[in-house]
């Protein structure tokens, strides 16, 4: 109660238009729904495709749609788009670290795979050995193995 005055200018946009906000919510809901449906369509399409390059391409598309959804949720539902620019920057700029994280770690994983395939023939042998599909229920507890092979 006592500190309401301090953020009076903030709390309620005085000319707050509920109808307009409601329209925006409906618009964003429709966008999110459509993007999700497109993602699912791509997911189903992915099942029928076995060509490696094409699969990577579709997965990339799905990731772009994922980021679009994230943008709409953060920007409109969490209202970040309507905050002050300085405040937005204190949140968005640190998150840029993710760009480095993702590139560095995935590249590292990939390099580990390549090195291992090159120097560890046993591992290559093992990862090429096909096994029979285990019968349901039989596999309980029998499949324990080191987490990182």
């Amino acid at each position: 109660m006592q500190h309401t005055d301090n953020f009076q200018e903030i709390t309620h946009h005085h000319d707050y238009d509920r109808e307009a906000s409601r329209k925006e919510v409906i618009r964003v809901t429709v966008i999110l729904t459509v993007i999700t449906l497109v993602e699912l369509a791509l997911g189903f399409w992915l099942m029928s495709i076995h060509q490696e390059l094409m699969r990577h391409f579709i997965k990339g598309l799905i990731c772009i749609f994922m980021l679009a959804k994230a943008f709409y949720i953060v920007g409109y539902f969490m209202h970040l788009k309507h905050e002050l620019r300085n405040m937005i920057m204190t949140i968005v700029v640190p998150l840029l670290l993710f760009v480095w994280f993702i590139i560095a770690f995935l590249a590292d994983g990939n390099s580990y795979k390549n090195l291992r395939n090159k120097y560890d023939p046993h591992h290559v042998e093992e990862s090429k050995t096909k096994v029979d599909k285990p019968v349901h229920g039989e596999e309980h507890g029998a499949k324990k193995e080191g987490a990182i092979e």
């Binding site: 093992e126 050995t129 096909k130 096994v131 349901h136 596999e139 507890g141 499949k143 193995e145 987490a147």
Partner: peptide, 14 residues
């Protein structure tokens, strides 16, 4: 514990 196989029918890790 992972009962599922890899996409290409090889044994998957946990």
């Amino acid at each position: 514990s992972n009962p599922f196989l890899n996409m290409d029918g090889t044994k998957a890790s946990t």
